[in-house]
Design a protein around this nucleic acid. Sequence first.
DNA 1: TTAATTTGTTAGTCTAGGCTAACTTATTTA
DNA 2: TAAATAAGTTAGCCTAGACTAACAAATTAA
Lengths: 222, 222
Amino acid sequence: MINLTKSEEDYLKALFQLLTEGGKSKIGNNQLAEYLNVSPASTNNMVKKLKAKDYIVSERYGKLELTDQGIEIAVRLIRKHRLWETFLYNYLNFSWDEVHEVAEQLEHIKSRKLVDELDRFMEYPKVDPHGEMIPDADGAYNITPKVTLSSLKEGDICKLAAVNDASVSFLRYVSQIGLALSSTIEIVEIRDFDKSICIRFDDTVETVTKKFADNVFVKIIS
Amino acid sequence: MINLTKSEEDYLKALFQLLTEGGKSKIGNNQLAEYLNVSPASTNNMVKKLKAKDYIVSERYGKLELTDQGIEIAVRLIRKHRLWETFLYNYLNFSWDEVHEVAEQLEHIKSRKLVDELDRFMEYPKVDPHGEMIPDADGAYNITPKVTLSSLKEGDICKLAAVNDASVSFLRYVSQIGLALSSTIEIVEIRDFDKSICIRFDDTVETVTKKFADNVFVKIIS
DNA sequence: TTAATTTGTTAGTCTAGGCTAACTTATTTA
DNA sequence: TAAATAAGTTAGCCTAGACTAACAAATTAA
């Protein structure tokens, strides 16, 4: 648990995200590989190593799971990532779509004091610029099961709670059409033939694709 | 010039520091190796690569020099390092001796915007917590030739201008005896048999070793 | 000016973390 | 339930950047 490489950390974080946010029952080697954009062979290698170090458990040909140790590492990374995003956004004039890439680098800086002091400096923010919860220094991680915009039905009304931060073009699109955190959204119509969704918010009516709606997380109001 | 690895950056920065701050006329393979705590063979390898990429020039068995490109990389790293040290010290409650290690990691984060915005956020500081000049965004680097405390003679009076930040125990010692930036120091006596130096500052009289005095940089007053 | 010492170079090895190609085991589906 | 497909594994190779051991060139000293 002392010193993991950047790659080892990346694998653990990715597995954690897939397990908690993906909604899938089984995460295997290939899903992890695809998520990280590496080959299944590379993943196999790394998983083997992380199993030997007791961060991952799995049976041969079976599904992957994290040990408590593994979860701890992943949550720390997510805490760091989101704190840095918040810092970049609130203090350094970074925009929504710029923060992720730099935070991906900053989350690997090894210094417990750095992240805790950054937290204090910003007065313990609860959510990052994309609406995601920031785990606290004890690793308490509030897993709110994600409800995607795409899972609602016609007539539902919801609030935009968070967005997936991993794609720059997606984030640009979100701000371009005028959606912002806490926007109230009404599902006007779901078109059956291509699953595209017509939504209304702030006197705007837009039609978005299923893929878009998959990356928008909401809180249902009615 | 696009994307260097962390190691490549480390070598370039180290060479730059040796060339500008070391006061030596010739920097060779072995000095660079020793400075970086790697073997001469590793250094040879890396130097070969950096020559191929046009960051370093040297003849076989000859002294090492940086190209303009190489200098630019090194100065940017120094700028980043010192800005981060300043941030850690002024905003995140880091102490003198804690900043260096974390800044060594932070200086490798790749984002031009990050460092320039950090600079703006802190209102363009001119010096870091150890008294060293911070190069500006254009890479203008004010090379003030360093005068070490050990180079003075009895009776000289000087001001503490900067200290070498690379050793934690050294920095602890500096603050422990009460020396601070801008302290006025008088050379009371230089003991010949071991080159130890007796200094007076702020009504304190202390004897320090030659090695200590080598790491203290001063501005001569009289 | 030759010998000793220092400095630089080369060759070969190691680890981390990628890759492709080939193969094996599970799972689907006809 | 057998064949097709998907998922997981293994073997072997590559690059970066370390290392040691052996050797060559320069420099210093006798």
